[in-house]
């Protein structure tokens, strides 16, 4: 089996106040860590208020990737941005729970549209405070 694992950066797209990241590859550890700092840098650079991370094509999330995602949510929160994980496959959700991995502080949404709604709602609440 030939699998391309060369260090391609995962693209981060900014739309209005949000960053959109779609993870399309089975990430090895370094790539996951690199993505974490890439997103934080992008939050700083753009002042984004929310980050949507689409994991709908990820076929598995092990404890390392799970920890990376929840770590990123806490770091982003400190930088005043909310993270929503979007599109987790049912089999991945089942496995994560069985593994015993909890992801405190991580919000999830079924799909990208619901995730954007979630962030917009949060942003409008925030603005009326």
């Amino acid at each position: 089996m030939n699998i391309d694992l060369h260090e391609k950066k995962i693209p981060i797209i900014k739309i209005r106040d949000f960053l959109i990241v779609s993870i399309q590859v089975d990430m090895h550890d370094k790539l996951a860590i690199q993505l974490q700092s890439q997103i934080l840098e992008e939050i700083e650079k753009t002042g984004a208020k929310g980050v949507l991370i689409d994991i709908s094509v990820l076929e598995m999330v092990d404890s390392f990737i799970g920890r990376m995602l929840s770590g990123m949510a806490s770091m982003a929160a400190i930088m005043d941005a909310a993270v929503v994980i979007v599109g987790m496959q049912p089999s991945v959700a089942i496995t994560l729970v069985e593994l015993g991995l909890e992801m405190p502080g991580v919000d999830t949404a079924l799909n990208m549209e619901k995730g954007i709604e979630m962030l917009e709602e949060r942003l409008s609440n925030y603005n009326t405070l």
């Binding site: 598995m60 999330v61 092990d62 404890s63 390392f64 089942i94």
Partner: peptide
């Protein structure tokens, strides 16, 4: 099935790490 595949893949990923 897909859930079984995911379980064994995740399990071995933990062991490999």
């Amino acid at each position: 099935g897909i859930v079984e595949q995911t379980r064994i893949t995740t399990a071995v990923s933990e062991l490999f790490r």
